[in-house]
């Protein structure tokens, strides 16, 4: 049982990390950024390229080197996110919602198949692996590497939460989420704040990409699709636009999948997990922590 919980929490923390970017972007400009999962993929490949360029890494240095790569990758994918927003989304900000959605799907394709053209369709294997002996905690197999990854995810999420709730920048984001036009009148540089939001969300997705690459080993150009979908789901369960809710949503989805597999078998896992979600959303359409928003006119 503890094993199931641990499996669920571990996968869930990846979902949560990716879901945050979805949630932030949606919260601020009401855009479902379908290319978000592909920024996760991009992160995995950027990390792969940096590690490849750095050459061999001695086993003792694995963690520090990976941390450095993680930071560099976050910067890289963050900038890619900003570019994406500038090129694909900003010109359409006042266009009908549907055009923006289709643009996001297009951006997703461009990233996926651009990566395929650049790096090839063959899956790549990370040169550095987070391998380690497992030890038992309350009957669950846990590795030190898993703990480090979860720790990293928690630090990143806590940092984000602080940023949004405690800083001027965060206040500006929240203001834009409430009402972009008034925010502009109050002297907030809306475009710049949106750019920075994309930077942060994309950087988190990139971080998750590197972490997944180093832990699981295999990366490929389509790896972002499924996790993008899952992250979107996690964001909706938690209450899209709400940061602590999104984190909870990610963990909850991970746990649902883990228990679904155990109770009903792998074939029924997604039926179970998503069935619960549908039920849940019919009861609470705003998600776990989402607020009931009064429709603005």
């Amino acid at each position: 049982m503890t094993q199931l919980v641990w499996n669920g929490l571990f996968v869930g923390s990846f979902y949560a990390l990716v879901a945050l970017g979805y949630s932030m972007v949606y919260g601020i400009i009401k855009l479902l950024n379908f290319a978000h999962g592909d920024l996760y993929m991009l992160g995995a490949f950027v990390g792969f390229a940096i590690l490849g360029a750095a050459g061999g890494v001695s086993p003792a240095m694995t963690l520090p080197v990976l941390l450095a790569v993680l930071v560099a990758t976050m910067a890289g994918t963050g900038l890619a996110g900003v570019a994406l927003e500038r090129i694909a989304y900003r010109p359409l900000r006042h266009a009908p919602r549907l055009s923006l959605l289709i643009t996001a799907v297009g951006a997703s394709f461009a990233l996926e198949y651009g990566m395929r053209a650049g790096a090839g369709a063959d899956p790549r294997v990370y040169p550095v692996r987070l391998d380690g002996a497992s030890f038992e905690v309350l009957g669950a197999r846990v590795t030190l590497q898993q703990l480090v990854l979860i720790g990293l995810a928690v630090v990143l999420m806590a940092g984000l939460n602080l940023l949004v709730t405690r800083t001027r920048e965060g206040r500006a984001m929240r203001a834009i989420a409430l009402d972009p036009r008034t925010s502009r009148l109050m002297g907030i540089d809306v475009d710049a704040v949106i750019s920075r939001t994309f930077f942060i969300g994309s950087a988190l997705a990139g971080a998750a990409g590197v972490m997944a690459g180093a832990y699981y080993g295999k990366i490929d150009f389509l790896m972002g699709f499924l996790i993008g979908l899952k992250a979107f789901t996690a964001a909706v369960i938690g209450g899209i636009g709400n940061i602590p809710g999104t984190m909870l949503g990610g963990l909850l989805l991970g746990l649902l999948e883990s228990f679904g597999t155990f109770w009903l078998g792998g074939e029924w896992r997604d039926v179970f997990a998503f069935g619960v979600l549908i039920l849940f959303l019919t009861v609470r359409p705003t998600g776990l922590l989402g607020e009931r928003v009064v429709e603005r006119v």
Partner: peptide, 15 residues
């Protein structure tokens, strides 16, 4: 049965 294209199969492995 597993779902293809994912990275984490720990739940299936536990099963």
């Amino acid at each position: 049965a597993v779902t293809p294209k994912e990275s984490d199969y720990s739940a299936n492995v536990t099963n």
